[in-house]
């Protein structure tokens, strides 16, 4: 690389950083202003932001674990939906929310294993494989769903003692139901595992250059299977969030495209857990703000246009950020030994 090119690349990085800082600053100022003028609403919007973002963060974590190991997962939507359904049924029939969450995790993992089977073992086109999961989940949940099932309850918020008393920050971050907490912890765990451990190094190697990993004795297929299964269980947690924590019951096709929005979140977040978290918060914030504005009656826009918002935002994000993000080099390609 020549020095001029290096300077160019460096200045591009600086540019992104500066834009990020300015943007972050504006958001922070806006929050402070909002809190001073209307603390109740501001707190409500921010708390809603965090909750809206939870399934998106989880979906994006699922996507990025898979893609980092070289497997595209566009079946996140189906994994979420199926897990939401099974978790709901488990809640209905056992009445035990913990068992229900485990059922959601297990469902996601099973579908993750199915995706790995299709893309690693059968070497199917990974996008078709994900589509199979989406259609299958939609069909199976619709077929087995009976109306009129009721549950004994959903996961409730747990205030973390004195932390929850901190103004603004307390109610937003430290007074949440368990899956929302788990999501925040998962972001940190996935970040640590991916970038600081042997497992993470091997995962990234398998996603970038599988034959390099193979020639030093790493089992590419095994790495991909396990990563996609773990990713699936995280998507399953997102599904469990929908039925056990957010809504409390199941509806047909209730994921509403969140699995796909999560993929945009993953790309926007540059395939990093913290990036995905930040991107998901942005999505969550947009939705929370719109809902609030509509609720307060200040915005006279037909509800259909508000309903479009996350999808339009997804397209805008994809249009603006794909190509600026480095995609794991081997993603989408079945690995064939030489």
């Amino acid at each position: 690389m020549t020095t001029a090119a290096m300077a160019k690349a460096k200045s591009r990085g600086d540019y992104v950083r500066i834009v990020g800082l300015i943007f972050g600053g504006i958001v922070l100022l806006g929050i402070i202003y909002g809190y001073i003028t209307n603390p109740v609403t501001t707190t409500a919007v921010l708390a809603s932001t965090l909750r809206q973002s939870t399934p998106l963060v989880l979906g994006a974590l699922c996507g990025l674990i898979g893609e980092r190991s070289g497997i595209i997962n566009i079946g996140i939507e189906g994994q979420m939906l199926m897990a939401a359904f099974i978790a709901f049924l488990a809640n209905v029939y056992t009445g035990n929310l913990f068992v229900a969450v485990l059922a959601g995790l297990a469902t996601g993992a099973v579908l993750g294993g199915f995706l790995a089977f299709m893309s690693v073992t059968l070497k199917m086109d990974q996008i078709i494989g994900g589509t199979v999961i989406n259609i299958l989940a939609l069909g199976l949940t619709s077929f087995f769903y009976q109306t009129g099932l009721t549950t004994q309850g959903k996961l409730q918020a747990i205030a973390l003692g004195p932390l929850a008393e901190i103004p603004l920050i307390g109610p937003v971050f430290f007074d949440n139901p368990p899956i929302t907490y788990a999501t925040l912890i998962l972001v940190m765990v996935v970040h640590y595992v991916l970038f600081y451990t042997r497992w993470g190094l091997r995962t990234r190697a398998v996603g970038e250059h599988p034959s390099a990993a193979d020639t030093v004795g790493i089992n590419v297929y095994k790495m991909r299977y396990i990563n996609v299964i773990i990713g699936g269980s995280i998507a399953g947690l997102a599904g469990a969030y929908l039925t056990l924590e957010a809504v409390g019951s199941f509806e047909r096709a209730m994921t509403n495209g969140r699995g796909f929005v999560a993929l945009a979140v993953m790309i926007f977040g540059k395939y990093t857990p913290f990036g995905a978290w930040g991107a998901a918060l942005l999505f969550g914030f947009a939705v929370a703000l719109q809902t609030q504005l509509q609720f307060s009656g200040r915005l006279e826009i037909p509800h259909q246009f508000i309903g479009m918002l996350p999808y339009v935002l997804t397209i805008v994000v994809l249009a603006g950020f794909v190509g600026r993000t480095r995609v794991p080099a081997a993603v989408g390609k079945p690995y064939e030994k030489e």
Partner: peptide, 26 residues
């Protein structure tokens, strides 16, 4: 070459025979 382009020399060298300190930390 069987090297992972975005990784460092040291990461590439130890890949598959990593030196770790407790809990799989590199």
């Amino acid at each position: 070459f069987q090297l992972v382009p975005p990784m460092t020399v040291a990461e590439n060298v130890m890949l598959g025979s990593e030196i770790t300190s407790g809990g799989g930390r590199l």
